[in-house]
Amino acid sequence: MKRIRWNMGKGMILCGFLLLLMCGLSYAQEFPTKPINMVITFSPGGSADPSMRLLASKAEKFLGQPFVTTNNGGGGGSVAMTILSKERPDGYHISGCSSTSLIRIPQFREVPYKHEDFVPIMHFGAPPSGLVVKADSPWKTLKEFVEYAKKNPGKVTYSSMGIGSPMHLAMEFIAKQEGIQWTHVPYPGSGPAFTAVLGGHVTAQSGSSESYPHVRAGTIRLLAIHHEKRFKSFPDVPTFREMGYDFINESVFMFAGPKGIPPSIVKRLDEAFRKGMEDPEFIQTMEKMEIVVSYRNSEDLKKYLEEAYDRLGKMIRELKLPKEPEKK
C-alpha cells in the first residue's frame, strides 16, 4: 500500500513538472495556446448571457482557441468580479460583465475590489432603456408628463429595477433639474417593475426592453429613451438629450480581465471581439434582442469608465442616495 502511494506521489510531481514546462513553453508561443476561461456575471436568461456567448463564439474563429464559458450572477456580478480580481493576469481568465459591477456597485456598498483592479478589454453594446407609461394615460410626450408631475407633486409614482440603477438615476436627474417630487418604487428586476405599470399600480416605469412588444401592440407608450441616438425600431421616440435632459444610460456590456494583462494580449482579445462584432449573425441577433450596439477599444473604454465613475459619484452625492456606511 505504502509503495503504491509513494509511486502515486512521484507520478504527481512528475506530472506537475511536465505541466509547468508546458506552461512555460506556451508563453513563448503566441497567445492563446489553450482555451480561455470566461465567466459571465449574469445568470442564463435575459439578454446579457446569450449576447456574450454569441460574441465569444464568433471571436473564437479569430483566436483559434475556444472559450470555456461559465455563469455566476451572484451579487449583481460582484461575486464573480471578486474572484476574477484574484486570478492570474495571463489573459486566460476574463469576464463578460456589465460596467455596473465595475463602477456602480463599489460606490454603493463595500466590495473587495475597485474598478482599477481590472483592465477593460472592449464593450460591444448596451441594454436599451427608456420611460414608459400606459397607452390609455393622458400623456403623449415626456414634456406633458413632466408638466403634470410639476403641477401634482407627490402624485406620480414610477417603478424601476432598483435604487441606483441607470433607470432610477434618469428619473431623479429630471426631478432635480425640474424641481419635481415623484416617488420611486423599486422592484426586484425589470419584469416585475413593468408588471406594476401594466397593472396600473404605478404611473410610469423607467425600464428596459421588456415593454417593447407592448409598445408595438399599443398598450404601452414609450415617452423617451436614455441613449445617444434614436432607436431604429422606434424612430419617433425622442432621446432624453433632445428633450433637454443631459442624461445617458452609461452602462455597457463589456469584457474585462484582472489588472496586469500584457497589452499585446489585451489587444489581441480586443481585436478578436471587434471582428466578431462584424459577423452578420451577431448583428442580426443584437437587433432581435434589442441591444444597442456600440464599441470602444480598451484604452477608450478605460477612459470612459473613469469618467463615468466620477460622474456617477457626483450624482450619488448630489441626490443623496443611500450608501453603506464605511466600517471602521
Binding site: M12, C15, G16, L19, V68, T70, N71
Partner: peptide
Amino acid sequence: CQFPDGLFG
C-alpha cells in the same frame, strides 16, 4: 455543469 479544472488540468 461547470467544474473547476484545478492545478493539474
